[in-house]
Design a protein around this nucleic acid. Structure first.
Length: 558
RNA sequence: UGGCUCAUGGUGUAACUGGUAACACGUCUGGUUUUGGUCCAGAAGAGUCUAGGUUCGAGCCCUAGUGAGCCAACCA
């Protein structure tokens, strides 16, 4: 399960940056990383990449990793998201050092803002948002200065304090850094540090009327926590100049200055990574919730039955670089199967049953047969499965006439019943619509599986699963397909991304028939329904509903 | 006055301070198998965006193009 010796042989460019710093004399005891989610939604597989990266670096360099909630926008954030984020990280198996909140630094941030004003590097601007936006210009044309830009320090101090104490209303004014309206980098054209909001914050409640922007809060939070390396995704690359400017201009000396570096975010084919869009799917009821098994959220993957180790392996294989990418969903499937094959308990479940009658089997007889729980690991032991004259098999496992590529049951053809006997198709009975109602076959009494008899050792091409018609349990099964019809729905910038949804992403089998052992399944275990795929008990329903995690690899060619 | 970033088989990632491309997934063969699973063996598939340059030698360095992404929220 842990292929670290083969996959870790190449270090990614962020590891190389850290090693270079170490080689150049950086004190390795000063290494510290952080994972800084905004609590405005649930974490998804893209965040998993970042989590694996940051916490993985922590493990590699024996350095602490903080969990920091970037909670600077109370209008979008809430406690439910905070709790889900913590749960997901723990489920993935990581432990953070400090649990931090940007909101814990609001006082310090305020003091630094005062310092910026006093050093004539920030000012209160009373223009409306639209005017400020226009003045900022466009990337190819320099912006123009705000008429409030040259007000006196005392005036700015006074107004900023009034902002803080609620003397102004939202939209009346903002605090801006005084940097360079002519910079080719738009983020340097006097960015906003504080805006006024009357919204109550989930942690500071009504204490603040002003809230810091991302740019003003993030780097300083890294600094306060003495994070050595602050890794974020590519879109923040243009923010780096501002990140560094703030750190240079706050009144703090002789402390470690964090280094921001950027890597490419993860994209998965046929799904989306935008928290906003995922939230829209939830709000519009198009999915059952953030943890809908079709969602690329960590909670969705968990509910679907993907084990945490599979996600860890996936993130390892995906790598870390600066190139835009779309990862093939097949890679996630591979990682899932690789882990599940080793740890899942096998059961037999018939999804779409048709009756099979063994003509030469005694009507009053029944047997208890032995079946392996996991052929990959004998420690999983065996289970007992009941067998009788009347069975149920998968409708698609029978054909009246079959070509040479069809390895299953057909008239005149032999096939093995998994864990039981070799049978031969003899005849069928149809209803007046032509649907097959019953399949009659004969069995070879000496071919019992595991008996060791020459007959049991005979080579027959196909093996099919079955359940005893006199002893089975009805269960419900949800199977899933890709959420979107197109490979890269996130590329669609418009809001009608929902039009690209795959309407057939969910299919339910209400009347699947499982061997009676299905009564003993446990929620924490993973299961393989033989020949059908991997399944997990659903977390929101009774113990009779399963989610299909992923199919088995299938080379069927007929 | 535009700036920044990226470009290697179908996909993703490698290739140490230059020595004619490797690994994984996927695809295709064959073998084993009481899961058309697993496992085992093997194959095809890029000559590294283009054009120049430096060099004995360039995927790596330089120049110029081309293509893609990001930046003009009081979002993060």
């Amino acid at each position: 399960m842990n292929n670290s010796d083969s996959t870790n042989s190449n270090e990614n460019f962020l590891e190389q940056i850290i090693k270079n710093d170490l080689d150049n004399g950086f004190d390795n005891t000063k290494l510290r990383f952080r994972f800084p989610p905004e609590p405005n939604g649930y974490l998804h597989i893209g965040h998993a990449k970042s989590i694996c990266l940051n916490f993985g670096l922590g493990k590699l360099f024996s350095a602490p990793v903080n969990l920091r909630f970037d909670d600077t926008n109370p209008e979008k954030e809430n406690i439910e998201y905070i709790n889900s984020i913590k749960e997901d990280i723990k489920w993935l198996g990581f432990n953070w050092d400090l649990e931090c909140y940007a909101s814990d630094y609001f006082d310090k941030l305020y003091d630094w803002a005062i310092h910026l004003i006093k050093t004539d590097k920030a000012y209160v601007d009373f223009q409306d948002q639209e005017t400020i936006s226009k003045q900022r210009g466009i990337p190819t044309v320099p912006g123009e200065k705000s008429p409030y830009r040259e007000r006196s320090v005392n005036e700015n101090l006074d107004n900023f304090q009034k902002m803080k104490f609620g003397k102004y209303n939202p939209g009346d004014c903002v605090l801006r850094a005084k940097i360079d309206m002519g910079s080719p980098n738009m983020h340097m054209r006097d960015p906003v540090l504080y805006r006024i909001m009357n919204t109550s914050h989930h942690r500071t409640k009504g204490e603040w009327k002003i809230y810091p922007t991302y740019d003003w809060a993030h780097g300083q939070s890294d600094f306060i926590e003495q994070v050595s390396h602050s890794f974020c995704t590519l879109e923040f690359e243009v923010h780096r100049e501002l990140y560094d400017w703030f750190l240079e201009n706050i009144d703090q000396k002789n402390k470690l200055i964090p280094k921001q570096r950027e890597f490419a975010r993860l994209n998965l084919s046929y799904t989306i990574m935008s928290k906003r869009k995922l939230g829209e799917l939830v709000d519009s009821g198009l999915v059952e919730g953030w943890d809908d098994p079709r969602m690329p959220t960590i909670s969705g993957l968990r509910r679907r039955g993907i084990p945490p180790q599979a996600i860890l392996n996936f993130c390892e294989k995906v790598g870390v670089a600066k190139r835009e990418n779309i990862i093939d969903y097949a890679l996630l499937d591979f990682c899932t199967r690789e882990v599940l094959n080793k740890i899942s308990y096998r059961l037999m479940v018939v999804f779409d049953p048709v009756e099979l009658i063994i003509t030469n089997y005694d009507e009053n007889k029944s047997e208890v047969l032995l079946a392996e729980n996991n052929p990959e690991d004998e420690k999983y032991g065996n289970r007992e499965v009941s067998f009788s004259k009347n069975l149920l098999i998968e409708r698609e496992d029978f054909k009246e006439e079959a070509n040479r590529k069809f390895f299953r049951l057909a008239l005149g053809k032999e096939v093995r019943l998994k864990n039981a006997y070799i049978i031969k198709g003899e005849s069928i009975e149809k209803d007046n619509k032509g649907n097959i109602k019953k399949i009659f076959c004969s069995y070879d009494p000496k071919s019992k599986s595991g008996s060791g008899s020459p007959e049991s050792l005979r080579k027959v091409k196909g093996t099919i699963h079955w359940v005893d018609k006199n002893n089975y349990e009805k269960i419900s099964i949800d199977i899933y397909d890709r959420l979107f019809k197109i490979e890269s729905p996130d590329e669609n910038k418009s809001d009608d991304f929902k039009a690209q949804l795959n309407k057939n992403s969910l299919k339910t089998f209400e009347n699947a028939c499982g061997e009676s052992n299905i009564n003993n399944v446990e929620f924490d275990n993973y299961y393989q329904f033989q020949r059908k795929g991997y399944f997990k008990l659903d977390s929101r329903n009774s113990n009779k509903k399963f989610n299909r995690t992923v199919t088995l690899r299938d080379n069927t060619k007929f």
